[in-house]
Write a protein that binds this DNA or RNA. Structure first.
Lengths: 167, 167
DNA sequence: TAGGTTGAGTTCACGCATGAAGTCAACCAG
DNA sequence: CTGGTTGACTTCATGCGTGAACTCAACCTA
């Protein structure tokens, strides 16, 4: 990608690079709001909160360690901890030390939490279709997955303890 | 993309769709922090703040109407207004009613503001390379630009007044 | 067992984004 | 020019995210 001015490239962007960057930045600045608005209106959930519930609902026993859950939901452990506290107050999940290793905390989805995510899922899926999937081709979808895999940067908080993605 | 269950598709995602969505959501949740951290450390700027300064610095006369600037920087007018207030207090920009139409407000970059963006630009460019460009191919970059163009959703705040993107 | 290290999880002060309500300029209808 | 409407912009209360400092469990070494 670089044009030969050193290993890092010049301190400015080529037109092609700028176009890619402009596109990407518009995605990351505008999409969160678009995708979150329906969830907020219908279920009072942020996108990250929905992902937390969703990951839990798909896990065996509806239980995941906090650090693993943060990784799966694409957030920091700190962010997850704050969300977990709110969810606990709403009765949507419980936390308990992992019996196998007290250093870990296992988050468990309650029935009420499961009901919440089940109720919110259609809204979320519709938003994903309306905002994204209905506008891109299958090849575009594969490109998104490919780029994301290449950029898969995880929070420094917990980049360790997980050797690789196997992606 | 849908599998024939109606115009909107079923209320769940196919494996391909889910993969695309998972990739996209990891981009929009993880990249902002990654891209912003260097700017915050070096210049005390958010990504959006940098974009505001950057757009101003590239505009003729270093002046843009607030609504146009919000559009260019991928933010709402409200968000820009808050940023502009902070920038004014730092002496980085000034605001004045548009002489041609008092309903508009024109934001102008000051010398200090220009110096700030010039100083921050190398940090920003390096972050964009380190986090994104160095990891994707030219084809990936084109895919990003293409997808972004297809999804180009602008804040409802100011979707009007601007008939189309010409993109 | 004591002392030190690692790493998971929590907390909290701070700052930013959101969005509804408000202000104001220009325009329009009568 | 009066009253009403549109739309650009601002304000502010509320809530969330961040990151540094902290607590604690398990492990390691002697």
């Amino acid at each position: 990608m670089t044009s030969g001015a050193g290993a890092d490239g010049p301190p400015w962007l080529t037109p092609e690079e700028k176009e890619a960057w402009t596109g990407l930045v518009s995605l990351i600045l505008l999409l969160p709001g678009r995708l979150e608005a329906p969830l907020q209106a219908d279920a009072g959930l942020t996108l990250f909160e929905y992902l937390v519930l969703s990951q839990l609902s798909e896990a065996p026993g509806h239980r995941i360690r906090m650090s693993e859950l943060a990784y799966l939901a694409n957030g920091s452990l700190s962010r997850l901890s704050n969300v977990a506290k709110r969810f606990e107050q709403r009765g949507w999940l419980t936390r308990a030390p992992d019996p196998e290793d007290g250093r870990f905390t296992v988050a468990s989805l309650t029935e009420a939490g499961y009901a919440t995510v089940v109720a919110a899922a259609p809204t979320h899926v519709r938003a994903v279709r309306d905002v994204v999937l209905d506008h891109v081709s299958a090849a575009d979808g594969r490109a998104l997955a490919r780029v994301a895999a290449k950029l898969r940067v995880r929070p420094t908080d917990l980049a360790r303890g997980r050797s690789d993605d196997g992606g």
